[in-house]
Computed example of a mutant assay.
Amino acid sequence: MFRRPAVRGRIHRSPTLSSATLPEGLSRLNQAPSVAAETALRACCGSHRWARRMAAHRPYPTVAALLAAADEAAYDLTSGDLAEALAGEATSALHDRGNLTVHTALRAAHAAYEAKFGHAFVLAAEGDDPTAVLDQTLASLRERLGHDEDEESVATAEQLRRLCRARLLRLAEAPARVG
């Protein structure tokens, strides 16, 4: 389960929103029918409950408000919601960069992780350098394989929350149509 930060603020929405001042993706998300919005949001986080909650709280006046609402909804996920979200996650394809030894170690670590914890390994990797991401992924896998179930549940929930935020940013800023 996600752990709440010590201090949480409330999200304040203005009664009217100007779609001209919003990024195109956020404007489309705000205006989309509920089913289309939930579908788009489920691509960010696989929990039905999270997506319904996010869709129900529209419109979002800013991207910051969207992200704050996403964090709030993520912190309220139950272990069942988290399991549902993780069921939709897949181990990412490995970049072509890096040597065979690194790729072999990553495949073995992913397999060990999935065998131990029963779900795909999720990591909100930082940076754009594929080699650095491979190294970061392998280091994180090795560290997290040493976790017990409770420690890993907290780490996984935090990484999933961070992944959801990154996906929401792409959704909010995308010129492509929602739904």
Rank of each mutant, 00 (worst) to 15 (best):
H57P: 09
G46P: 05
R97E: 15
C45R: 01
A56D: 12
Y75K: 08
A56P: 13
R28C: 04
S92V: 07
T91V: 06
S47G: 08
V102M: 14
H48L: 03
P59C: 06
T78W: 08
P33K: 01
V102F: 10
V102Q: 11
Y75S: 07
R49Y: 03
P59N: 07
S27R: 11
D81H: 13
V35T: 00
A70H: 12
G80F: 06
R49L: 01
A90P: 01
A32M: 02
D96W: 10
T104W: 15
T39W: 02
E84Q: 09
A64S: 02
A32N: 15
L100N: 12
A65Y: 11
A93H: 13
T101D: 14
P33Q: 04
G80E: 10
D96E: 13
A83T: 04
G88D: 09
A65T: 11
T104L: 10
G98Q: 02
Y75C: 05
Y75I: 13
S79L: 13
A40K: 03
Y60K: 03
G88F: 06
D76Y: 09
T91W: 04
A36F: 00
L67I: 14
N30R: 12
E24T: 09
E24I: 01
P59M: 04
E24C: 04
S92G: 13
A64W: 15
A37M: 03
L41A: 02
C45P: 01
T39M: 01
R97D: 14
